[in-house]
Design a protein around this nucleic acid. Structure first.
Lengths: 198, 198
DNA sequence: TAAGCTACCGAACGATCGTTCTGGTGTCAA
DNA sequence: TTGACACCAGAACGATCGTTCGGTAGCTTA
């Protein structure tokens, strides 16, 4: 027996909830949701919540408290071609959904973030203040951008090899190549980059 | 009159709550908190919550629901120098974030992602294939990096003004300045950048 | 050794929670 | 014309919520 196709809910409901969550970091109660959505019956709120839950946007804690679901943090990824008159971006067509965290992080337990200091990697498009997504591992390949520990500080550089051993090369001619005296301590390999510009 | 100095609370309480929040993205109720903290009296939970609230770790929504406070996501040891042994690569901000998503997105309903095509903004550290975090809005200021719609395609450029009107300037001398014939249609303003390198 | 804290327990209570059920309205196809 | 269905209102209800208040055990201070 085929499952009955559920009518899609008003996307504005989800958006309002996401905005509320972004502000308060909490999912509100049914009565607050009713106000938020302009609905005056808790029973209908319950039904809407049920559908969002079914669609994966909401979930429950073991203690039966409402919480964000797996798809709650999805973002619209606009295609690079735009339809003819498309003033209203609410149209579902022309968008894929992506969650930024899933996009960048493959192994959460081995992934961390390091803030970039200085302009030594500017030719690789890595600016001062950017966050580097690092997959922690003790070794890397020549050509990888690695986060190494030099003089008790994190440093982001290209990994390269000279006859003397491994070296760290900046992507900026104004900076010198680093040739570590002892063993080169690698913290991890760069897997991504995050920059906030506003 | 000097304010009475409050006894510091057990830091383990806050840690347990932060762990719970990291898992469920929600602040639990008093009875769940009691279980979480190994306390059997809700009245005492209420007192602890009151002190966390006083210290800025917890807060209330306008609807009197408990939510994370301003200091909830703070890091204990936030500096980019590395301790002996393997470090916890904290953010130098003094604040940690729950998710990368949270770091980049302020208004989810008005935010979407656009993939960059080409090298026209390479001098701004924006590479081919990067994802631009866009806050959708119909106008912008000179100097902003904007996502505009030109010939039914998204294009990322600096917004500038010439005597003829607004123009779009690339960050790469090999590319021409775009002078739109009619009205310049702005999709939104760049608020961040995401790059995957692996 | 009594008084005065702090840390906690436990019962009681009114408010609010989410659920359930009954019912109304608008739309569309048969 | 009549269902069928989606959308929504409202009342009723037991469960759970957070608050209040009284009480206890242990440690200080005087």
């Amino acid at each position: 027996m085929a499952l009955k196709q559920q009518q899609p809910l008003d996307p504005a409901y989800l958006e309002k909830l996401q905005d509320y969550y972004a502000e308060h970091k909490v999912i509100p109660s049914y009565s607050v949701l009713a106000t938020l959505w302009g609905i005056s019956a808790k029973s209908w709120v319950a039904e809407c919540v049920r559908r969002f839950e079914e669609a994966g946007y909401l979930d429950w804690t073991p203690d039966r408290q409402l919480k964000p679901g797996a798809r709650f943090f999805e973002r619209r990824l606009a295609h690079d071609t735009v339809q003819a008159g498309l003033p209203n971006p609410a149209l579902a067509d022309g968008y894929d959904m992506v969650t930024i965290d899933d996009y960048l992080i493959r192994v959460p337990s081995k992934t961390s973030l390091v803030r970039v200091k200085g302009e030594s990697m500017i030719d690789a498009g890595i600016h001062d203040g950017d966050l580097i997504v690092v997959e922690q591992q003790p070794n890397a390949n020549v050509g990888d951008i690695v986060v190494a520990i030099v003089d008790n500080e994190f440093t982001v550089k290209y990994l390269d090899r000279e006859k003397g051993g491994f070296v760290l090369k900046p992507a900026n001619k104004a900076f010198p190549v680093i040739r570590p005296k002892g063993r080169l301590e690698i913290f991890g390999v760069m897997a991504g980059l995050v920059r906030r510009t506003r």
